[in-house]
């Protein structure tokens, strides 16, 4: 059983005359501990695929098994639960809550999981330490650089140790130095045994991954093991 198994999934927007086939009979399976980049131009359907993988949307047809569980036709609340348990999101725009401090942002998924205050603080502190933000815990997002904000977002994604890290253009809003730093952290998380999926349009980022899936016009164009992959941080 694969960790992520998408079988013959289609997503059609505006069914009828002006329908858009964002995903056209796509099948992907990703095993535990893989490091995958999904690359495609804008309009290729990669965002729709990312929403599908992240349990943020349901397919028009086909099935999605996550951890062996069919998650393709769940209610909103069930999906929320799956997201909370299985997936850590890293977004292009960081998506931190501006009114909360770094620590509070990282604690958030743990609150929704019902983790007690003490345990929550321990886990959140550990996650922030692991991305090198020991000294920024009480800072709010607007008091931090883009790279730092993205590190808080990564800490939030890993705080409750979900099996999958789903990163959507994680370096899209960052300068070169920060990009290097974030890629380094993501790679390290992969070495620590997490399954990492990066969605990007940037071949430079995709080259960092071990397996590269190319998507175009809603279909998988290629799915290869990266020949240039370098096993180093």
């Amino acid at each position: 059983m694969k960790l992520v198994e998408i079988r013959d999934v289609s997503k059609i927007y505006n069914p009828g005359e002006n329908e858009v086939k964002a995903l056209n009979h796509v099948s992907i399976s990703i095993g535990k501990g893989e490091f995958v980049a999904i690359i495609g131009q804008s309009g290729s359907g990669k965002s729709t695929l990312m929403n599908m993988l992240g349990c943020l949307d349901t397919p028009t047809s086909g099935k999605y098994f996550l951890h062996g569980q069919d998650v393709s036709h769940m209610t909103d609340d069930e999906q929320s639960d799956v997201r909370n348990r299985e997936i850590g999101f890293i977004f292009q725009g960081f998506n931190l809550i501006p009114s909360l401090t770094a620590l509070e942002n990282v604690e958030l998924p743990l609150i929704y999981r019902g983790v007690g205050k003490k345990e929550r603080e321990r886990l959140a502190n550990a996650a922030l330490n692991s991305v090198g933000l020991e000294k920024r815990k009480t800072h709010r997002p607007n008091e931090m650089s883009g790279g730092q904000q993205q590190r808080v977002a990564i800490a939030r994604a890993i705080a409750q140790a979900p099996p999958i890290l789903l990163a959507d253009e994680p370096t899209g809003n960052l300068d070169t130095a920060s990009t290097k730093e974030i890629i380094r952290i993501i790679k390290r998380l992969y070495y620590e045994g997490r399954t990492v999926i990066i969605i990007t349009h940037d071949p430079g980022i995709a080259q960092q991954a071990k397996r590269i899936i190319t998507i175009s016009d809603g279909m998988i164009k290629s799915d290869i093991i990266n020949p240039d992959y370098r096993d180093e941080i």
Binding site: S80, I97, L108
Partner: peptide
């Protein structure tokens, strides 16, 4: 954001 990281309705 809250919903994506697991907040229920």
């Amino acid at each position: 954001i809250r919903k994506s990281i697991g907040a229920k309705t």
